[in-house]
Write a protein that binds this DNA or RNA. Sequence first.
DNA 1: ATCGATTAAGTACGACCGTTCGTGCCGAGA
DNA 2: TCTCGGCACGAACGGTCGTACTTAATCGAT
Lengths: 216, 216
Amino acid sequence: MTEERSGAAKVRATRSDGARSRTAILSEAARLATMDGIDGLSIGRLAQAVGMSKSGLFAHFGSKEELQLATIDAANEIFERHVLAPASAAPTGFERLRLLAEGYLDYIEADVFPGGCFFASVLSEMDTHPGPVRDRLVRFLTDWLGQLDAAIREAQAEGALDAGEDPAQITFEIEAALFLANAQFVVAHTSEPIERARRAIMLRIAAAATSTEGSA
Amino acid sequence: MTEERSGAAKVRATRSDGARSRTAILSEAARLATMDGIDGLSIGRLAQAVGMSKSGLFAHFGSKEELQLATIDAANEIFERHVLAPASAAPTGFERLRLLAEGYLDYIEADVFPGGCFFASVLSEMDTHPGPVRDRLVRFLTDWLGQLDAAIREAQAEGALDAGEDPAQITFEIEAALFLANAQFVVAHTSEPIERARRAIMLRIAAAATSTEGSA
DNA sequence: ATCGATTAAGTACGACCGTTCGTGCCGAGA
DNA sequence: TCTCGGCACGAACGGTCGTACTTAATCGAT
């Protein structure tokens, strides 16, 4: 009865506390990385923050780069939970686009990470450091922009947005507003950039929606 | 006869090669800081890059923080030369606004710094590290946004832009396009984000110019 | 020509970096 | 119950960090 596992199964299951520590480590790592950078964050300080020894923490990952990659994945899950998930149930592409932008602004304003959006913060640190870490960050970025682009195209197919508009251009402008909102919010911790981004996106979508003649 | 100095004046002028070294150090420091960060850049590597000893370089500044502050000032001068100066002779606020945006995009595309705009790169690193370095970066940022804002207000006074528009909102949207153009250019090294930003800004300015009725 | 100030290098320091190793603890499968 | 492997620990490694002292070379004005 107990030997139902076929194929390559791990003989001994991992202990539960190991996974719990790993989660706690990565959660703290993602938070600290937005302040000190994913390279700037040292294993010693991370260990101290989670209350365990440097070597004990290190054993979970084997190298700093593996820790960084795992941290990115953990941050990705947090991002999906806060931004992507609430938008996934939208009935239309137009509504999904709105929810994605709104979800991102909420995610910033809610201080999910102390240093603002994890990916904005960490990618700007690693953009000139080639390697697996940068690659994974770029892959995330591509996915995220793809989500915006897809929602816009859907909205165009629905007739909610002017089909004559370039989806990539609208994506750029929306992402620009979100990106700057994040940067300014981290510096000033005021809701003003959030509001400005909201307004900019609203205006841009309105302009793409009410364009009765395909002018370009 | 030669003792004209009253009060506390430096009796002996500084040597010329000292100033030359200092300039070379700061130029390289500004470049490297856009790649490795202004904290991530170490004195040892900087010394190696300029071809002098760690202690010899260090003696110029006395502390890393002083080096960082001097680096920011040096980068500021480069920024002024590339972006602010070409726009300063504009006959109108409207034209100056256009030249500021264009100058910034050129400054990015010309790879003045290997890691993109110095201030975008370094401020995102220091935004959560309070202290004199962050303060000076924020001061620069305030000045820069003030330049955009002033040009917009002038353009409104000239009648080139709709006086009903909120200057701070237009500033935000233009800065957003420039900011994202820089970030994406560093990652992809393609002119596409530059073009998208140009188009976004052009459209935004056109929208603010052709608004015949003060709607908001 | 000389003297003093300036520039740079040499050396050393304590702290921290990422990493390795040996050693126990403890919980779960037998 | 016994055992064994996941888990965490402390100590230590070589290396690099920022910084402090000391010393040699070199220019400028007397």
